[in-house]
Computed example of a mutant assay.
Amino acid sequence: MRPGELLSVGEAAIMLRASRAQVVDLCARGLLPYVTVGAHRRLRRADVEALVRPALTREQLEQLWLHRAIAGKFVANPTGLLAAAAVTLRRLRRLHPEGHSWEWLDRWEAILDNGAEAVLDALTSATPYAIELRGTSPFTGILSEVERSTVLAALADSRRDRARQLPAEKVERVLRTV
């Protein structure tokens, strides 16, 4: 199966060892991206696999959220952002004439040449390849400082929303030991 393959909710549920209702809930909460094909939800295999793997580090999660915001700007102005990324890519090549970064810059160049769909996939995917790829992103500087701060604040809010409350008796026990 290809990484870009679309799965049904049932297939995703099997992979996640969850019920269909739990997968639909993940979609509704925005934690699992999906597209609607006719009357059915379809999920990218890579996004489902990313939930199966261990969680992203804080830095990787921040990069993913920032790049998803960049993807929103890319959809609004693909030509302008492709041009800006090409300029940044040339600048990065001058800064890093050799070494490990060069390989990733070559990969970004191939992605930029493959068009909007490939770029959007690289910006929004949670696959290990895309995570590593975003470490040398030519889309730096696309978001203003205000946009960047807003995205990071939204990430922090989402993390707080998912934090579990400690039972009162456990809080009291912890406070007594301190």
Rank of each mutant, 00 (worst) to 15 (best):
M1N: 00
R2F: 11
P3S: 13
P3A: 14
L7G: 02
V9E: 14
G10A: 04
L16Y: 00
R17K: 08
S19Q: 07
V23Y: 03
V24R: 01
L26Y: 07
L26N: 02
C27H: 01
A28Q: 04
R29D: 08
P33W: 10
Y34I: 00
V35E: 08
T36M: 06
V37G: 00
G38N: 03
G38W: 02
L43E: 03
D47W: 02
E49K: 04
E49L: 13
V52D: 00
V52R: 00
V52Y: 00
R58F: 09
E59W: 11
Q60S: 13
L61H: 08
L66V: 02
A69I: 02
F74S: 11
V75C: 10
A76R: 14
G80R: 09
G80S: 06
A85T: 06
A85R: 06
A86N: 06
A86G: 07
L89G: 03
L89Q: 02
R91D: 11
L92Y: 12
R93Q: 11
R93C: 05
P97E: 13
G99L: 09
W104G: 05
R107Y: 13
W108G: 09
A110P: 06
I111M: 03
D113S: 14
N114V: 02
E117F: 12
E117N: 13
V119I: 14
A122M: 06
L123K: 03
T124K: 09
T124R: 12
S125R: 04
A126P: 08
A126W: 06
Y129P: 03
R134A: 12
G135A: 14
G135S: 11
S137H: 10
F139T: 05
F139W: 08
G141T: 04
E145A: 15
E147Y: 13
R148E: 14
T150N: 11
V151H: 08
L152C: 11
A153Y: 10
A153V: 12
A153I: 10
A154T: 13
L155K: 09
D157H: 15
R162H: 05
P167A: 12
E169S: 10
K170I: 13
V178M: 12
